[in-house]
């Protein structure tokens, strides 16, 4: 297994590099979603909705097959924001997203963001970002906004 620290090297948060500007790109981050991961996520979260786990049930839904938990896809967005903003994300982050489509296990997803606005205020500098996740067929499966305030 690759040590978490070795894979981290070189990815300094945007905030420590200074000079965050509107238009700056976050990521992209590529993640491979597997049914085994969905299974383990269901166990950890207690979310045993059959649409994630039961192939027969899922076949009768509009998706036609098992899909990943929205919160699992959203966890990748949080990972991207933690990479970009470090502790400020965990301490003061806000996000608002819509789950627009299904992530089918076996797919690779691309998680990305873009700084929309940087605004100085009494509590620090607030960075507003657009965030999105695309499935490997190009469809957008998650879209939303995130805000991080850095001192």
């Amino acid at each position: 297994m690759v040590s978490p620290l070795s894979s981290w090297q070189g990815k300094l948060p945007l905030v420590t590099r200074g000079g965050i500007q509107a238009g700056a790109a976050l990521g992209p981050l590529t993640k491979h979603v597997t049914q085994e991961q969905v299974q383990r996520y269901a166990e950890a979260s207690g979310d045993h909705n059959p649409i994630h786990l039961d192939a027969e049930f899922a076949a009768r839904t509009p998706y036609g097959r098992r899909v990943a938990h929205g919160m699992l896809t959203l966890a990748f967005v949080s990972e991207l924001l933690m990479q970009a903003f470090g502790r400020a994300w965990a301490e003061s982050g806000k996000l608002r997203v819509r789950f627009k489509g299904a992530v089918v296990p076996g797919q690779r997803v691309t998680v990305s963001g873009r700084v929309r606005r940087v605004q100085a205020g009494p509590e620090g500098t607030t960075v507003e970002c657009a965030v999105s996740v695309h499935a490997d067929d190009g469809s957008e499966v998650l879209a939303g906004e995130a805000w991080v305030t850095t001192r």
């Binding site: 909705n49 649409i51 839904t61 509009p62 929205g70 301490e91 982050g93 806000k94 789950f99």
Partner: peptide, 16 residues
């Protein structure tokens, strides 16, 4: 009959 997670918002105020 079918329920899906449609949206999520989260605001953090203090580290956990």
């Amino acid at each position: 009959r079918m329920r899906m997670h449609a949206g999520q918002a989260l605001e953090s105020f203090h580290p956990i």
